[in-house]
Amino acid sequence: MKRKIGALDILLPALCLALALGVAFVFGPCGPKEDGGYMTCRWAGRAVLGLGIAMTALALIRLLLPRRARLGADAGLIACAGAAIAMPGTLIHLCMMESMRCRAVTRPAVTVLCAVIAAAALLDAALQIRRERQS
């Protein structure tokens, strides 16, 4: 039976893609040093990029899953979002100064975007559970 595509079905992959593309092109961490080398924060950005790509794939695969399995996908998205939030600053060190791009731009952007993704996935899971109970 063909499933109706809801707003969250479109929003989740879009947000995950925005995370991946954003950290790559818009709110990525500090650039290379004068000697051409990279600072630690670059790897935090790469880690978030990897997670963002994985989350986008998961959000797209979710569209093809049966209802029960979609709950698992939502849980996966929430966990990945949490991991992405922890990458810059907690799991991978950032630069020392708060004025540096990795702290001023990258970390807040990743935090906000991942929090929205987690909230959307949580909302989707809650709606699904409610639909299950009603039917």
Partner: peptide
């Protein structure tokens, strides 16, 4: 001076 982690001095 520039520390190993950063391109900014303090």
């Amino acid at each position: 001076v520039t520390a190993s982690c950063c391109s900014a001095s303090v």
